[in-house]
């Protein structure tokens, strides 16, 4: 007996929104080639979804362990601030001691390490200090933006560095670079979890933490792993965001993106109560949310309504995952 994948609703909804656009939004599926690079609404969606997609990949693993990482937005701000400070080298900055020159590789590495350190911090609080994940990561969510401002001296650091900017703005093989970054991260995380036993261990831990310890799963190391992965993903998302605007805004970089990421994960069919997770579902969820946003924007609806739409999607997903709600629906159908 093979049950349907958990992301079937999300895929259905995505197809529905795409079909809607096919009829209602002229030129939605049009793709132009310019300088060997593809342009069009669909490409734009795949480009813009990158930061949220990265965050939600890591978030999927964290949520599968019954956790949540609220700090990813703030981590983006921190890694962005680190990268911007290393590139722009503003006077009196605390990172002046590090000179990476123009090496994009080293700067991205610094950003990723920033994310990794944040992830380790979260992971230690959750696994060692046994603090509830919502609370433990709330800490960095509050203090992280303060740290980001500390790094950038409270200013919006702007820079002009074409090589670094190409992370967000360049294209490879016709597709925008952020798309490839997501593909790379998704592939690595998929291989790490599904070609090894880590996926089973993560699902076991989320399904029953005590039993997981009793069968010898190293739950502490596993938690450290999932939060670190999320930290690195957030670090990369921060790089893309900084490269996109060629600057670092400690206050607004990644603001509320943690919520979008959680939304993408749950829309993608991973239960917030932990256990079974689906990375594919998460990617579909993230694309669905971005498609909705783009649809709203291209149709000229007031942009603030995206917030309302997101709210309604969250509620719809929650209700569809609620056994009580489904149970209530059923007898009605029978009666009707």
């Amino acid at each position: 007996m093979k049950s349907m994948p958990s992301w079937i609703y999300a895929l259905g909804a995505l197809i529905f929104v795409l079909l809607f656009n096919a009829f209602a939004t002229p030129g939605f599926f049009e793709i132009n080639v310019l300088d060997g690079r593809l342009f069009g609404s669909v490409i734009d969606i795949l480009n813009r979804v990158a930061p949220v997609a990265l965050l939600s990949l890591g978030m999927t693993l964290v949520i599968a362990t019954r956790g949540v990482d609220l700090s990813v937005g703030a981590v983006m701000a921190m890694s962005g601030a680190v990268a911007a400070s290393l590139i722009a080298r503003p006077e009196g900055n605390i990172l002046l001691g590090l000179n990476f020159g123009d090496s994009v590789f080293l700067i991205v590495l610094a950003g990723l390490v920033t994310g990794l350190l944040c992830g380790l911090f979260n992971g230690l609080l959750v696994s060692r200090a046994r603090i509830q994940p919502i609370v433990a990561t709330l800490l960095l969510m509050v203090a992280g933006r303060g740290v980001a401002q500390l790094i950038s001296d409270g200013q919006i650091i702007t820079f002009s560095a074409p090589a670094f900017a190409s992370i967000a703005r360049g294209a490879t093989l016709g597709m925008p670079n952020p798309f490839w970054i997501v593909v790379l991260f998704a592939a690595v995380i998929l291989v790490l979890t599904r070609w090894t036993a880590l996926g089973l261990f993560i699902e076991s831990l989320g399904s029953n933490p005590i039993a997981a310890r009793n069968v010898g799963i190293n739950t502490g190391a596993l938690l450290l792993f999932v939060y670190s992965v999320t930290g690195v993903c957030a670090g990369m998302a921060g790089m893309i965001a900084a490269a996109d605007i060629q600057g670092a805004d400690a206050n607004n970089a990644g603001l509320y993106l943690e919520l979008d990421a959680i939304l993408a994960v749950s829309v993608g069919g991973t239960l917030l109560s932990g256990g079974r997770f689906s990375l594919v579902g998460t990617l579909i969820g993230a694309i669905l949310m971005q498609t909705l946003t783009t649809t709203i924007l291209t149709r000229g609806v007031a942009p603030e309504l995206t917030l309302v739409v997101k709210a309604l999607v969250v509620l719809a997903v929650c209700l569809l995952q609620s056994p009580t709600f489904l149970h209530m629906l059923r007898p009605k159908k029978v009666a009707a």
Partner: peptide, 21 residues
């Protein structure tokens, strides 16, 4: 419906901010 408070109020967060804007 025994929904997670965290998610429902997250929706509330979006909704209120959307209405406000």
């Amino acid at each position: 419906f025994e929904l997670q408070p965290f998610l429902v109020t997250l929706a509330g967060l979006f909704l209120c901010r959307g209405i406000a804007l």
